[in-house]
């Protein structure tokens, strides 16, 4: 047991790599976010003519679309790390999966909040059971379950292993859930909603949007590396304390 903990409590190579990478990802995130924000929110016209009366609310897309992309991308990262942990028994997989999922939950929550703000004006309601928003809501639930499971055990290694299995089950289920929700949504078209389709994204918006997406991605990598470092330090501390107790 303790030998197992030591095995992934001292991956010196990863820590060296993380230390070297972090300044770069952080700088890239800052640059991309600055360019995207100034260009998208300050300068780029919101499409001419504004796509069917959306007016300036399209600017919400500069944070909504990247958040939605990240919510999915982070889950893919969690699943990949979990697969590495379970299938190839890579010791870092547990740590990386555990470090990533709270970030993904934040992005899913942001997607829901910004989508709701956009919908409040465009759909005339704070929440509609739109297929895409509903899928993100379920994704958010999956993140919550994953986070809760990682913290549910006295032995963190046990929680990490259980959460990895859950992440892989989730990734198999996600396409099925997505398909079911889409199907359900076409069946129950709420009549009271004026405009059901999502926002039309104008060609002029693509370049700043691209910068925002890159910025969000690099932001995620930076925070991921940081959180993984914290997890590793905590694991090593725990292992050392256990060894102290044993001796």
């Amino acid at each position: 047991m303790s030998a197992r903990l030591h095995a992934f409590a001292n991956p010196a190579r990863f820590l060296r790599l993380a230390r070297r990478l972090l300044p770069w990802t952080a700088a890239l995130a800052a640059i991309c976010l600055a360019i995207g924000a100034v260009w998208g929110i300050g300068i780029a016209p919101p499409g001419k003519p504004p796509p069917e009366g959306q007016g300036e609310t399209v600017r919400i897309m500069y944070v909504h679309v990247p958040s939605a992309w990240m919510a999915l991308f982070v889950y893919a990262c969690v699943a990949a790390a979990s697969a590495a942990a379970i299938i190839w028994r890579h010791p870092l997989g547990h740590v990386l999966a555990r470090a990533a999922s709270p970030i993904g939950a934040c992005f899913a929550l942001l997607t829901l909040a910004t989508g709701s703000l956009w919908g409040a004006k465009m759909w005339g309601a704070w929440w509609v059971w739109d297929a895409r928003l509903t899928s993100v809501l379920i994704l958010f639930f999956l993140y919550l379950g994953h986070i809760a499971l990682t913290h549910a055990f006295d032995d963190p290694a046990r929680g990490a292993r259980a959460a990895c299995i859950l992440a892989l089950v989730g990734v198999v289920n996600l396409p099925i859930i997505k398909f079911s929700v889409d199907w359900w949504n076409t069946l129950h078209q709420p009549a009271s909603i004026i405009r059901r389709e999502g926002p039309a994204i104008d060609a002029q918006m693509l370049a700043p949007l691209f910068f925002m997406i890159c910025g969000f991605t690099f932001y995620f990598f930076s925070v991921w590396l940081l959180r993984a470092r914290a997890e590793l330090a905590a694991l090593r501390t725990r292992a050392l304390k256990l060894r102290l107790l044993a001796s």
């Binding site: 600017r59 919400i60 909040a113 004006k121 925070v223």
Partner: peptide
């Protein structure tokens, strides 16, 4: 924001806030 300030700024502000707090 073309009369949509009540929707656009909270969305942008909330995103900035959540990302900053997480960081």
């Amino acid at each position: 924001m073309g009369g949509y300030a009540a929707y656009v700024w909270p969305a942008l502000g909330l995103t900035a806030l959540v990302l900053a707090v997480l960081l």
